[in-house]
Design a protein around this nucleic acid. Structure first.
Lengths: 219, 219
DNA sequence: TAGATTGTTAATCGATTAACAATC
DNA sequence: TAGATTGTTAATCGATTAACAATC
């Protein structure tokens, strides 16, 4: 069974993989061919042990006495994360946050593709500046039935978030990226990733207040 | 010394406090007076032990045989986080993400106050729709010297992020909330809280890809 | 008082680090 | 081959959970 008793890959490990992806992507763009675990770990700010331990959850990607081929390891990690295939998404709520996400370069480059956005406000309906259309919320079911959406992004007000989740799940979406600062529930089999801006800001404030300073290297 | 050997409050604990704040705030607004640790923990999705253990890092807030007074505990946590005093902030980079942050209700309500935004683009200069002014980037030093800014929010492109951080730090800002997907460095004594959207989205994708589903209760 | 629930100490569990045999 | 560095096993460290005496 390996590692732990079949309990699956720890969430802490899964949260570090994207960090590795970003650094390797950077190295690849700098045309660096080769890197050892101590070198890469040092750049990231973790130990080499941790890096190798983390990778070992997914397989063997290095060569003794050599290290890792940057492009090969990046390719492997991309495949683990799922960046090697298209990840079609829709955006629920097309306010400022929705627009910020829509315009963010780093998603497109990693194969996350925004197919459409939905909003109740007719003023924002129609073609967006980012190449997709903004529809009325009541068109969500039909859209989902006709398009292979993997991820739904909730940038609606808190009040509507749960309703949106239910709708997405009812039409087969298994990944929810939730920005609404509210507890949402989803049936087993559906992944919900919360990103609450206010939690992050409060943590910063708390750290400031406790004077526990220095930029802790989390990612 | 208590707890651990003076190494300070663990970051995992500090990241849970904002979650407690949000739930208590909700209870307070529902006019619920009293709650026990098992009840509150259940709502949040953690164990009562963890909740009590976490709180004990900061003091004693309950009453044996009774539980916690919601308003008192909220007040205590607010004070620990620093929400009991004004937290003036400025925004560096006034694009979509900057606007999303500026318009977010949950900050203002928690005593985070946006004093101004700065951007290199003259088209966005002038009064914003949210009651603060948007200035040119070259006015940052003067502004910082004349205003008690605690937190600088980096929503600039990755290329300019480090320059902005250096500027903020040079003028006494000790809290940095960084949205630019780039490693930034700051001297000891400065807190940097990273929030990289793309990390979060990649984690969701990885979880989907590994079919490690169910909405893990992180907050 | 009896029942309930805290704050804290002790036990368990999991994650990180260290060490090293395997091997390129 | 000798030197380097992996993948993995074992040791340490820290965080979570359980248990319970203190006490409202």
């Amino acid at each position: 069974m390996g590692h732990n008793g079949g309990k699956g890959i720890p969430l802490v490990v899964m949260r570090r993989l994207p960090v590795y992806q970003r650094y390797l992507d950077e190295l690849a763009r700098l045309d660096i061919d080769r890197i050892s675990s101590p070198e890469l770990a040092k750049r990231i700010g973790i130990t080499a042990s941790q890096l190798r331990q983390d990778l070992s959850w997914f397989g063997s990607f290095g060569l003794q006495g050599y290290g890792y081929n940057v492009r090969e390891l990046l390719k492997a990690i991309n495949s683990i994360i799922g960046l090697d295939k298209e990840n079609p998404m829709i955006l629920l709520g097309y306010g400022n946050l929705g627009r910020a996400i829509a315009g963010y370069e780093g998603f497109r480059r990693r194969n996350f593709q925004l197919l459409a956005a939905f909003d109740t406000n007719p003023a924002v309906h129609g073609p967006s500046e980012y190449g997709f259309n903004v529809y009325d919320t009541n068109e969500i079911p039909q859209f989902l039935d006709n398009n292979p959406v993997k991820i739904g992004i909730i940038t609606t007000p808190a009040e509507t978030a749960q309703k949106m989740v239910d709708l997405l799940v009812a039409h087969g979406v298994e990944g929810i990226w939730n920005f609404a600062p509210v507890r949402i529930t989803a049936p087993p089999g559906v992944c919900v990733e919360h990103l609450h801006l206010v939690n992050s800001l409060m943590t910063l404030s708390l750290r400031l207040n406790q004077k526990t300073p220095v930029n802790r290297q989390e990612n």
